[in-house]
Design a protein around this nucleic acid. Structure first.
Lengths: 200, 200
DNA sequence: CTACAATCTTTACACTGTCAAGATTGAGAG
DNA sequence: CTCTCAATCTTGACAGTGTAAAGATTGTAG
């Protein structure tokens, strides 16, 4: 599919999202300007305003796309280990942490409040809720198997998410003491975290 | 203590940090510009450069100050309930979440990677480690009392921190479904989170 | 084929972080 | 007490930012 060099780009909206993700990975959050994104997409600096109300809207779109990919990864793992609840839980958590490590800046954008008024972006809200539903279903399977404490699956899902999310966050921000990181592999640390809330 | 209107401010460094915290609380992360901070401190727009190498350095100072206050709050609670391990744990966690809620934007600045090269600010690193040490000591007390699983106190402290930090983060970002928030008080939710990793 | 609406460009503006050069001043040396 | 200097603060400038307004281009519906 060769890129046509017409006045109308054809699929600028997605091209901008893609360019944004790339610049994010390359230059970090503070290095991602609308103008750079536009230039990378081969378009004038205010062309983005035909597709996004402002920079926040582009960030919302990037975040939403990120949630979609996160869902893909975790749901793939969940399906693969559908018959082994505890393994499903651990592998999904590992996928979550890997996702964070693969593209730390996008992960930060998704979760660190760079996006300020999330409620104004319904797609973003829907996609993030879809992820929570996935976690919840994994948790429920583990509760049924006696691996996680029974009780509100919402609250327990929140615990599971929280413990892994907290770990990922502290990891990305370098807040985890080096001594700990040298002690065990990341993978083992994730398992350790989860085992704190697992019964068996 | 009347403010003298001299050419030399006298304590501009601390005044800038204070002004920064105030603007942060008022206008949010994206609204905190160096120039606004300088104006609020009653000083020209590039005066800050006599005390901070760049904007990141001011942010580092604000974060460091934040960690100091967080430590104060948690250690006060820890001392108060020094003879009741489980209560000490819960109250310290509650203090942590309250700190996050009292000034969400400062909390975000401290933990959300707005500060990009933390390692270059040794005071920041020291202060954040001091907090972790405090958590560790609380955890160790609870391990000794059979309330938390025994084993590496570093790793267990990481779990406790992670589960509460994750909760606080999801809370601040509005990622916690409303249904859950309506179900229980925040205080009860924090307890619920911790009880996931508590034995008794 | 034509008109319109969507898309993209150009131009402009206020604001940002940062730097360089100069003004002011407090404090120590003599 | 005076001189001097280094620390501190101001002024002025610059490139880069987000965004709004007005105009140019073009695919497409009628």
């Amino acid at each position: 599919m060769p890129k046509k060099k017409t006045y109308h780009h054809g699929d600028l909206k997605n091209a901008l999202i893609k360019a944004g993700v790339e610049i994010l990975a390359q230059d970090g959050v503070s290095g991602m300007s609308l103008r750079k994104v536009a230039m990378k997409a081969g378009v004038s600096h205010s062309a983005p305003y035909s597709h996004f109300a402002d920079k926040q809207a582009l960030i919302a779109a990037i975040s939403t796309e990120g949630f979609r990919q996160l869902y893909e990864r975790m749901s793939a793992v969940a399906e693969e280990y559908n018959s082994q609840p505890s393994k499903q839980l651990i592998e999904a958590a590992w996928a979550y942490v890997q996702f964070a490590l693969d593209d730390p800046d996008r992960f930060k954008v998704m979760f660190s409040g760079i996006l300020e008024k999330e409620k104004e972006y319904p797609e973003f809200v829907a996609e993030s809720q879809r992820n929570f539903q996935l976690v919840k279903s994994i948790v429920e399977l583990n509760q049924a198997a006696g691996i996680l404490r029974s009780g509100s699956s919402d609250l327990t899902a929140l615990s599971a998410w929280g413990i892994i999310h907290g770990f990922a966050m502290l990891l990305l921000e370098g807040q985890i003491p080096h001594a700990i990181l040298e002690l065990k592999s990341l993978r083992k640390l994730v398992e350790f975290q989860l085992k704190q809330i697992m019964l068996a």
